[in-house]
Design a protein around this nucleic acid. Structure first.
Length: 272
DNA sequence: CTGTTTACCTGGGGGC
DNA sequence: TGCCCCCAGGTAAACA
């Protein structure tokens, strides 16, 4: 579900909704959600205040008072949104954060249970990203850093865009949309990319992702923002899930195939 | 080392 | 209705 634009939308919303909130209660309904000790996680975040919420690639960081950070990854179907305090959790709700003197609570819901929560110390933030070998965020990465990393690889350009060690934040939907709009084949060999092409591709990446943020993300089935609302970018998709529909440039039907083990949609005429 | 496949989970949709 | 199979926005571990 959530790629960079969806995660960014959630983070912006939470920054408006729960900043300075004081955590009074932590309810965990699915133990494996928490990496490491559940009880300790609960004990450690109770009675701390939310200072701010940030993002790097698809990771969410909830910065707490007294130098702790909750790290969240939503994976495929994770949802992070607010609800009225008195609403009952359903079978897919795995965690709730309740606040002092607030009518809303934050709930984590995840049908496929791939998402994870983790607690780290603020001091360990840089080390955490380093250990994950997480690349620079797609909206921040410098053109030359991006290009050098891409040409060093020797695989399909789509696989490279999906690789969070090269550029962080792009997933299957936006990889297809970016390559379609840039008119590059998803199987184009990354090591063959020229510097001009690489710089142009990065500009396209930022343009597509920023546009998607303006539309508050893409909803196919599960994604909702922190207010529980769907995104709007699915209304302007040009490649992803558009199999059989005419290409907006040349009218050739969009084709579906498999690249990097993922469903891939492209125009066989424009993307050679 | 590099690149590719599989496992983790649940639910929806199509074919029969 | 029901069963079986395939598919799904992501990542890390296992494999070749």
């Amino acid at each position: 579900m959530p790629e960079l634009p969806e995660v960014e939308t959630i983070v912006r919303g939470l920054n408006k909704q729960v900043i300075n909130c004081f955590i009074t209660e932590v309810k965990i309904y699915y133990k494996n959600l928490i990496i490491s000790n559940c009880k300790q996680f609960e004990k450690e975040i109770k009675n701390r205040q939310i200072i701010k919420i940030s993002r790097h690639g698809k990771y969410i960081f909830i910065h707490l008072s007294k130098d702790k950070i909750i790290v969240i990854h939503l994976r495929m179907t994770g949802q992070l949104f607010t609800k009225e305090k008195n609403e009952k959790p359903d079978k897919h709700t795995h965690l709730e954060l309740v606040f002092k003197r607030k009518k809303i609570k934050v709930i984590y819901r995840d049908i496929r249970k791939f998402g994870r929560f983790e607690l780290i110390s603020s001091n360990d933030y840089d080390q955490y990203l380093f250990n994950k070998n997480l690349a620079s965020d797609a909206l921040v990465i410098k053109p030359n850093d991006f290009y050098q990393k891409v040409v060093k690889k020797k695989k399909a350009i789509k696989a490279v865009l999906l690789d969070q060690h090269i550029i962080a934040g792009i997933g299957n939907i936006y990889a297809d949309e970016i390559l379609f709009r840039e008119k590059i084949s998803p199987v184009f060999l990354s090591s063959d990319l020229t510097k001009i092409q690489g710089y142009s591709l990065l500009k396209r990446i930022k343009k597509v992702l920023n546009n998607a943020i303006l539309k508050k993300g893409t909803t196919f089935s599960d994604y909702v923002n922190s207010y529980g609302e769907k995104g709007q970018f699915q209304l302007v998709l040009q490649a992803y899930k558009q199999e059989g529909k005419p290409c907006v440039f040349c009218k050739t039907p969009i084709v579906r195939s498999k690249v990097a083990g993922r469903s891939t949609f492209f125009c066989p005429e424009c993307q050679k």
